[in-house]
Amino acid sequence: MNQGPIPAADAINRLVQELSRLPGIGPKSAQRITYYLLRAPSEQSGLLADTIREVKQKITLCSTCYNVTDIDPCPLCRSEQRDRNTVCVVEQPQDILAIEHTGVYHGLYHVLHGAISPTEGVGSGDVRIRELTDRLQDGTIQEVILATNTNLEGEQTALYLNHVISPIGVRVTRLAHGLPFGTELEYADDTTLTRAIEGRQKL
């Protein structure tokens, strides 16, 4: 009788299973990584394991902007160089990296950790909107830049934020919508093109 494939050692299976739960890693990649780690010097896998543990232990959320950080408040919120009158609202910590990479923004941030998505049951209480409006109460912040994604959820989140922030009396702006650099016009969708035409600028 066919007994099926002979199973690998239990510990190997467990690692394959754990790895394949990571985003972007399927069972085959998980297997490849597992067998690579088996062959690699033990310092390397030890370092990887320690780093993962350290990240989970040391990294918390900044109590002001809710960015991920190992000290609270985070370096961005502590920095003397940052403009304390502007706050840029993003959906996730990775978005801060993208904006910081441009080097043109010098204000503070606020991470929502998600976007409003009514059909998936994510309401305004499930993202950090209350924390943002609390931050605006003392009057230091004069402009809120909404940098949520330009998909339907991000757009709805921006509209909702405008709806709750405007009455506080703070200027609310939204990142411009337009054509991405390095692309061809003919592939642009109607929504993007409409906004690009509406938001055209004098050269």
């Binding site: 757009e155 969708d189 929504t191």
Partner: peptide
Amino acid sequence: QTINGFLPLKTDLWLIS
């Protein structure tokens, strides 16, 4: 290819909802 993007539905908090 978009036939109709329904832009008004995507630019108003209530209409999106």
